[in-house]
């Protein structure tokens, strides 16, 4: 019974994580501007990965593996938003037609 519960939780969360990843991949091609695409790309790195690893940790053999998953999530949740922030800053600095793409608050 417990095994089945773990399996179902893992499966549902894995499918959810893969769905988020797919949506973010689709969004990278769907959106036109760098700032929108950056948001979608970062979503796959943070939310998709978190849900996937949460699902995997339900069927992990021992607690050490769960801690390792947690550390991976911590690392990527620090690294990925910072990378997005740098991309955004570079885009704002370099793009001359930023006003055409979006509303810029001065």
């Amino acid at each position: 019974m417990l095994d089945w519960l773990r399996f179902i939780l893992t499966a549902v969360l894995l499918v959810g994580g893969i769905t988020v990843m797919c949506i973010s991949m689709y969004g990278v091609y769907r959106f036109k501007f760098v700032l929108n695409r950056m948001h979608v790309a970062a979503m796959g790195d943070t939310m998709g990965l978190f849900i996937t690893l949460l699902g995997l940790s339900f069927s992990a053999p021992d607690f050490t593996t769960v801690i390792k998953f947690f550390l991976i999530v911590c690392f990527l949740w620090i690294a990925s938003p910072v990378a997005s922030h740098l991309i955004a800053r570079l885009e704002v600095t370099l793009n001359d037609h930023l006003e055409d793409e979006m509303e810029v608050l001065k």
């Binding site: 620090i78 690294a79 910072v82 800053r89 570079l90 600095t93 370099l94």
Partner: peptide, 17 residues
């Protein structure tokens, strides 16, 4: 030349990572 110099967010996270 175009890149942000001394970005505080990057520096703090780099100091951590």
């Amino acid at each position: 030349h175009h890149e942000p110099k001394d970005d505080v967010i990057l520096q703090r996270s780099a100091a951590l990572l």
